[in-house]
Design a protein around this nucleic acid. Structure first.
Lengths: 364, 364
DNA sequence: CTGAAAGCGCTTACAG
DNA sequence: CTGAAAGCGCTTACAG
């Protein structure tokens, strides 16, 4: 049985049969003897509807298994109740695993959206693709969250365009003085400083840094600045020979970076990797060269991805609170959408000391 | 400047100013001097439009930064170009980490959707919630993917309801003879058998099984059946005292299960955990009791989550190909949506032998 | 508190 | 190949 859209003959109206096809608000209206407008109001809990009418309407809606058509209501009301999450990937192998740190962020963002009654549209994007329009202009989402490392200078233009178009967006990443958009990020400087200070405390004298140290990768750059600041505090001048680029946050990049370091034949007794994945690769390279961690070289990473504590030895790192980060991103974006004042925020980090950086430590 | 919806005065029509507000297909029509229908056709690459007209229309669309309003087009065409992914969680602590295996699946599903031009709506659901209607009936998605362990018998009813409503859905999980829906899953029986056979090959005589072994958790149950089949082949009758329930796939459940096993004081020389997370918990419990892996007890898991190879010792497990799984789920669902014939599929698994199960192995 | 009406921005028969 | 028209299912002024 297919319900008619407009007032059906009395026979139909009195039939209490539950229709097979999709029910509309008109069907509820006929069933309850009110207008379609009233049905719409009642289901949206408008105070304009009497309690008694609302009850009857909701009962009928339940009975007919009625759900508001989101496409129609979005079209009419001009907002979607949906946020889009764009995860950028470097244009590498498409079967590579996603950085576990982003996976954690993703989980926390999804949860935060659900708790606030928003749907989340997920998408992977090539950095090169014309994503700046695809979610906002099509009205698929009310706002977008930008997640992912990548060459900042290369996509700064797109951020600018986004902002110019009045698009609501929040970026996870470095908080920069000249940024065209709104961003939420961890205190990378503080984290880098904490790690380097800790390594120096352990008695390390020559701490290498594995990770890009340029404004192309601002988060890594801030960690690097924290590192040099800690060295400076200890009266040490950073040796450029101890810094090796690793722009991508992958195990392979870490492995390669450490090999590069070894080829240089400069002495080092500690490695601060700009991310845990880089640290994992570096540890593998060290093992391949028969260098013992932490006895000969201390190692530390950044992120505290779930596997960090399971490594052998467990990895000293900096915890980024992904739960707080996800919630902050979502809340900030929602404020933006509601035209409330918002601000760029720097989230606190926490040093997590494990065996990989502790000289003379016994099996934990 | 706000563009009029209906034919504007000539002055406006000839003005080439790019409007600030959202452009509509009518704006493109005015700009190019064709009807709005033709604009719609051209942008959808209908063969009914001449090449020359199409070019002009597309150029104008680019110029005005025009994008089709998805809500309007979805409403009219009655499909959304979106799939929904529902991830079920046991009603545990809300800040618990998501099982890394599901996170991998999620990544692969997202990628598969993107490659096929579909958007992905992500959502966490409590098993108890009334999710069976929320995505289909609201027209937010053309179909849904169900992911997550949980008590199968408890939500069988909902699957039935879903199917009865004609909802398009595919479930990741066990392939059962009496299931009301369509599912894609790995060959859990085969995987369980391979693990158990491998442990016996290594010389183990008393292999414990950590995981629920009932039809409440069909995937675990199938792994258990594979395990008993392998024992049987070796002429061993499974000892019920060696099976400990662990319904949840968490480290804590694994830790508890192993403690339970120890309390029973039955001898065992190997542990087959129904998932890697359970195995990790079991290994921690073994370590806490001073029992050496693999020298005194061999350990194996299931899933091959990313951290499995980094454990100490690295964990023997069964690889579930999440990339293939995600693609198969998405492709099957799309076939369903296109009313093409589909079938439940069993995906192959692969035994991955690492140090945790190898007696007398040296540091790898 | 309720109803009649307009209209969100498209897609798609229908007619030419 | 193109256009005029209907209509997808809602929300929301407007009027009472």
């Amino acid at each position: 049985m297919t319900l008619l859209r407009r007032p059906p003959p009395a026979v139909r109206a009195t039939s209490l049969q539950v229709p097979k096809g999709k029910a509309t608000s008109f069907d509820i209206a006929h069933l309850t003897g009110v207008s379609q407008s009233t049905v719409s109001r009642a289901l949206r809990d408008s105070p304009l509807v009497s309690e008694e009418t609302r009850q009857r309407i909701k009962a009928a809606a339940d009975q007919l298994n009625y759900k508001v058509d989101k496409n129609a209501s979005n079209l009419r009301s001009q907002h979607s109740g949906t946020l889009a999450l764009l995860l950028f990937e470097d244009p590498t192998a498409d079967d590579s695993h996603i950085n576990p740190f982003f996976l954690s962020m993703l989980g926390s963002i999804t949860r935060a959206c659900a708790l606030r009654g928003y749907d989340l549209l997920m998408s992977f994007q090539q950095l090169s693709y014309d994503w700046h329009a695809d979610y906002a202009d099509t009205k698929k989402a009310d706002g977008i969250i930008l997640l992912g490392y990548g060459d900042y200078l290369a996509y700064r233009d797109k951020l600018q365009k986004l902002a110019a178009q009045g698009m609501r967006s929040v970026r996870w990443g470095a908080v920069l003085p000249d940024q065209p958009d709104l961003s939420i990020g961890c205190d990378n400087f503080q984290g880098g400083q904490a790690i380097a200070a800790h390594l120096l405390d352990q008695g390390c004298k020559r701490v290498a840094f594995l990770g890009d140290a340029s404004s192309h990768y601002p988060e890594f750059f801030e960690r690097y600045h924290g590192y040099t600041a800690a060295l400076e505090q200890a009266g040490i001048v950073a040796d450029p020979a101890l810094q090796v680029d690793a722009a991508e946050s992958t195990e392979q990049a870490g492995y390669n970076a450490l090999e590069t370091l070894l080829v240089r034949k400069v002495p080092f007794d500690a490695v601060f990797a700009a991310s845990d994945l880089i640290a994992i690769g570096a540890m593998r390279a060290l093992a391949d060269h028969g260098i013992k961690v932490p006895e000969q070289v201390a190692v530390a990473g950044f992120d505290d991805i779930p596997m960090a504590r399971f490594l052998n030895p467990p990895l000293t790192t900096v915890l980024q609170d992904t739960k707080l980060a996800g919630e902050t991103l979502v809340d900030t974006l929602l404020q933006l959408i509601r035209n409330e004042p918002v601000e760029t925020r720097l989230l606190p980090v926490r040093l997590v000391v494990r065996r990989s950086s502790q000289f003379g430590s016994r099996q934990a």
